[in-house]
């Protein structure tokens, strides 16, 4: 092993690839009963790391632990990171409770994001289920801010109920744009909801796009993505043009802990965004 140069002598002080960098919580927005959006800035200033839409960070709550949380902010905005966290486990609950001024650890960004370069000049279909809107929001910002770079854009967002909708005000303003159709559907609603009720897959048959030159992006529960990919494939989009953001248990984010494997892929390194053509065979098998 001659390639083992001694660039790391004993006790160099390098904290290694697992050490989080402290960031301060700038603001906190409660999205729903269990979901919170945090805006973070690196302590000591600086621009912070740039990221591609679809990538994620490992967020660290001091004394509790780490969780993989996708980037949800505008990739063109420097200096802050935006993360939407749902309180499910210990770590995400601790992260959700952070208040402005609190400190949180960040390492990243990790993973491969949405195929933005391939999308240019094409129609784009975005499908989100529940919290799945969070990793799609950076790419939605990109679509709206460079709208002329893309063909028709269809965004279909499904939520359990109107009270579980994320980014409510922002969606309201996006929906006023006439150059893009942003559909919202919920599983069920009380009488104050005059929008659509049903599942996202029901909105696919009359979505407007040219299947031969369309890139579809989706994120949500695995079953949501499987059904949505099938529905889009039935409309003629090639499986290589349908991109899914996958989720698995994740500990290290650098392909060393083995947890996030899905078939031959490390979701942290090869994903989280992967083309349907490459993963459909594994999605079809139970308990992969």
């Amino acid at each position: 092993m001659r390639e083992f140069a001694a660039e790391l002598a004993t006790g160099t002080g390098d904290p290694g690839p697992y050490a989080p960098f402290p960031h301060r919580v700038i603001s906190r927005t409660k999205e729903t009963a269990d979901t919170t959006t945090l805006v973070l800035a690196p302590i000591g200033g600086g621009k912070g790391a740039r990221f591609s839409p679809g990538q994620f960070n490992m967020l660290y709550a001091f004394g509790v632990g780490e969780a993989a949380i996708s980037m949800s902010g505008d990739p063109s905005e420097e200096g802050t990171l935006v993360h939407t966290v749902r309180a499910v486990g210990n770590v995400s609950t601790a992260l959700s409770r952070l208040k402005p001024g609190d400190v949180v650890g960040v390492r990243g960004p990790y993973g491969k994001g949405w195929p933005v370069d391939q999308m240019r000049g094409k129609d784009v279909v975005v499908m989100a289920g529940g919290l799945g809107l969070a990793p799609l929001r950076p790419v939605i910002y990109e679509l709206y801010s460079h709208r002329e770079d893309y063909g028709r854009v269809e965004i279909i967002y499904g939520s359990r109920s109107p009270t579980e909708l994320l980014y409510y005000d922002e969606i309201q303003s996006w929906r006023t744009r006439t150059d893009t159709r942003f559909q919202v559907t919920v599983d069920s609603a009380d009488r104050n909801w005059y929008g659509d009720v049903g599942v996202v897959t029901q909105r696919v048959p009359d979505a407007r796009f040219d299947p031969a030159r369309t890139i579809a992006l989706m994120c949500g529960p695995e079953i949501m993505m499987k059904l949505s990919a099938q529905a889009l494939e039935a409309r003629g989009i090639a499986p290589s043009d349908i991109w899914l953001s996958m989720e698995r248990n994740m500990k290290c984010a650098i392909a060393q802990c083995g947890h996030c494997q899905f078939g031959p892929y490390f979701i942290c390194r090869d994903g989280p965004v992967l083309p349907y053509a490459r993963i459909r065979r594994f999605l079809a098998v139970r308990e992969v």
């Binding site: 499904g158 939520s159 049903g198 599942v199 897959t201 949500g220 529960p221 079953i223 949501m224």
Partner: peptide
């Protein structure tokens, strides 16, 4: 079918 899909909580 759609009702079944709704039961699967696909918008979680």
């Amino acid at each position: 079918d759609d009702t079944r899909v709704q039961l699967a909580d696909i918008h979680a």
